[in-house]
Structures are given as structure tokens and as C-alpha cells.
């Protein structure tokens, strides 16, 4: 999986980004004049109370939502809509139920015109990466929630994105599976050296996975905060610095 470094490093620059929705005739500013610099290869977590616009920001970065104004640049180039340099992992696995695991993982490659043989080869590699090699021929409804989400992750990795966008990817999983998957994501991120932008409502998950945490405020007047997580990988959830960071972050949300 090399060659990623030569194309670009997966830097994201957001300038003056604004997005609003109209809800019941009322204008709702979800994002207002947001500035953000994501370094290439970094893991950035976006947290904030519900309604703070974290998912909207991710959807804008994915190209699934158009911003009202402002600019998004990826490796210096202006971003227009969806692109081959990014892929999205959604909260639900969103697998096509009529395709096997292998065909689901190859789906992203096939729609981009990669030949079947090459798509299969890359899909198999990514299925191994998420530890599902034995389940290539299984259908989605034969998989558990955690396994299905792994397939979704493999599908996103198969297209070799520079930037991986994750929209609460583990939010629907049970607590045990979630912990395993967090370790899995940390490992994949280290091995694949992609930029990872992760929206989550789980502060511990943010500290466990991210280099920096962006805290979006509920009140649009407040300034978003960026918090450096300067802990070595792999991280120990019960180490004093980890616990201290979590306490600080939770206090910021008024939790104790």
C-alpha cells in the first residue's frame, strides 16, 4: 500500500466554511466561518454536543454536502464534490445485501473502473487487513454488526484514499466490540498512514485514536477549540495522562 505519499499527503485546509439549513422555515447556522488545518497523515477527532455541526462538517469534506460559502482545499487543490482521494466510513456499514463480502469491498473500486482482477486483489488485501479473510464469500446478513462494520472499513480502505472520513463509525456497536474496533482502527491508521478525520460523540474514543481533538461548541458564537493529544501510540486508557486528558475534556462539556 505505498504510493500514497507520492500523490499527496492528505492535507486538508478549510477556510471560512459556512453551512446553514432551513428547518421549519427557520434558518439554522450549522457551521459559521470555520477555519481548520488538518496535517497530512494526522488523526483528527471532531467532538461536540449534538447539533454542533460535526457530521455536517464531515459530509462537506466528503463532498456529500455543498457548503454555502468558504473553501476546502486538499493538498492545496480546491475540492469539488466527491473525489477519489477520500472515502467515507458511515455509522451503519451500508453494505449491499446482494453482494458477498468480497464483492462489497471491491464495489468502490469497480465503480471507479478498476478491472475485476485488480479490484479482487486489492479487496482481498483489505479484507485480510480487517481480519475477515475467512468470510469473503459470506453475505452481509450472515455477519454480526462488528463484522459488517469491518467490511465497511475494508471497502473504504480498498480505494486507497489519502483521507479517511469516519462518521461515528463505532456508534452503533456494543461496548465490547467498540473497544476491539478502536484498537483495530488505531492499528489500521498506523499501517496505512492515511489522514483520518473522525466524528465521534465518545470522548474516550477521540483521545484514544486522535492526534488532535477539535471541539465544536454548541453555541455558534464560541470559538472551536483544538486540543493536542500528545500521548504515545498505542495508548493506554488507564494511564494517568490519558485519564487526566479525559477529565479535562469532559469538564469542558460540563461532565464529571
Amino acid at each position: 500500500m505505498d504510493g500514497i505519499g507520492t500523490i499527496g499527503r492528505g492535507e486538508v485546509t478549510v477556510r471560512d466554511l459556512s453551512k446553514s439549513f432551513t428547518l421549519n422555515g427557520r434558518r439554522l447556522d450549522v457551521l459559521r466561518n470555520l477555519h481548520l488545518d488538518v496535517r497530512g497523515g494526522e488523526a483528527l477527532a471532531i467532538v461536540g454536543p449534538s447539533g454542533c455541526g460535526k457530521t455536517t462538517l464531515l459530509r462537506v469534506l466528503a463532498g456529500l454536502e455543498r457548503p454555502d460559502s468558504g473553501q476546502v482545499r486538499i493538498d492545496g487543490q480546491s475540492m469539488e464534490g466527491v473525489g477519489t482521494d477520500r472515502s467515507v466510513i458511515f455509522q451503519e456499514a451500508r453494505l449491499l445485501p446482494w453482494l458477498t463480502v468480497l464483492r462489497n469491498v471491491a464495489f468502490g473500486l469497480e465503480v471507479r473502473g478498476v478491472t475485476r482482477a485488480e479490484a479482487d486483489r486489492r479487496a482481498r488485501h483489505c479484507i485480510r487487513l480487517v481480519g475477515l479473510a475467512e468470510f469473503e464469500a459470506a453475505y452481509p446478513r450472515q455477519l454480526s454488526g462488528g463484522m459488517a462494520q469491518r467490511v465497511g472499513i475494508a471497502r473504504a480502505l480498498a480505494v486507497r484514499p489519502r483521507i479517511l472520513l469516519l462518521d461515528e463509525p463505532l456508534g452503533a456497536l456494543d461496548a465490547m466490540t467498540k473497544l476491539t474496533m478502536q484498537e483495530e482502527l488505531a492499528r489500521i491508521w498506523r499501517e496505512e498512514k492515511v489522514t483520518m478525520i473522525l466524528v465521534t460523540h465518545d470522548l474516550e474514543e477521540a483521545i484514544y485514536l486522535a492526534d488532535r481533538v477539535l471541539v465544536l461548541p454548541k453555541d455558534r458564537g464560541d470559538v472551536p477549540q483544538l486540543i493536542e493529544i500528545d500521548l504515545p501510540h498505542p495508548r493506554d486508557r488507564s494511564a494517568p495522562p490519558f485519564v487526566a486528558l479525559r477529565r479535562r475534556l469532559m469538564a469542558g462539556f460540563g461532565l464529571h
Binding site: V82, G83, F90, G108
Partner: peptide, 25 residues
């Protein structure tokens, strides 16, 4: 709609989405 959005996020054109998602579904 979520499956269609998934296909869109991979840059699938309309025709491909129709053939590979809408029709089988």
C-alpha cells in the same frame, strides 16, 4: 437512500448507481 449515498461517496455515476444499487434493491 443510505446505500445510494454510499455509492455516491465512491463517485459512482447515476447510471452505475441505478444498475448496481437501485435495480437489485
Amino acid at each position: 437512500r443510505k446505500l445510494i449515498e454510499m455509492a455516491t461517496s465512491f463517485g459512482a455515476p447515476r447510471g452505475t448507481i441505478f444498475r448496481r444499487v437501485v435495480l437489485p434493491a
